[in-house]
């Protein structure tokens, strides 16, 4: 905060404005705990020595409704989460859980062995294990001398 200002020395609102701006900028960083207004599902990607592991929080899915595919190093998970069947729209007192179709695409950082893919679903968490493709051996390229 400047102690002395040329021009309008008695403009208290300028400082107030700046202070409010600064506080509002801080609000964006404190979204911890407000989990339901974000992308669904939330995913984490972990790297192990020989594999990548993707975990996604997708509670309450029937595994027949869960679709996990991989194409050109891009992993796609999609499905639909249905609202509780017996509840009418006007019966809700509170509705914070996500319902509806969802899809996430995750680009993998490295080549993977598409045959060694494995997906497990337990306690509402999907876990996809992807084996890294073995690094291809360096290949010598012969240089031909021009005429």
């Amino acid at each position: 905060m400047p102690i002395f200002r040329w021009g309008q020395p008695w403009d208290p609102f300028l400082d107030l404005e700046r202070e409010v701006d600064r506080l509002l900028q801080g609000v964006n960083l404190t979204l911890h705990g407000v989990r339901f207004s974000r992308r669904f599902p939330q995913v984490n990607l972990l790297e192990l020595d020989d594999s990548y592991v993707l975990t996604a929080e997708i509670p309450g899915i029937d595994i027949s409704q869960l679709d996990v595919t991989i194409a050109s190093n891009c992993l796609t998970i999609k499905g639909t989460r249905l609202p509780p069947g017996e509840a009418g729209e006007d019966a809700f007192r509170r509705q914070e859980r996500f319902h509806g179709p969802w899809q996430r695409k995750i680009q993998l950082p490295d080549r993977i062995n598409e045959d060694g893919m494995r997906a497990d679903y337990s306690a509402g968490v999907l876990r996809v294990t992807l084996l890294k493709a073995p690094a291809s051996a360096a290949r010598q390229i012969k240089v031909n001398e021009g005429p």
């Binding site: 929080e57 509840a87 019966a91 007192r93 914070e96 859980r97 996500f98 306690a123 509402g124």
Partner: peptide, 25 residues
Amino acid sequence: LFNPPIDIYETPDGLVLYADLPGVD
């Protein structure tokens, strides 16, 4: 600690509450 998202709705018999608790058995 997180606040799990919930749904609450009314039925003829009372209330039903749903809570998302991924990773909890």
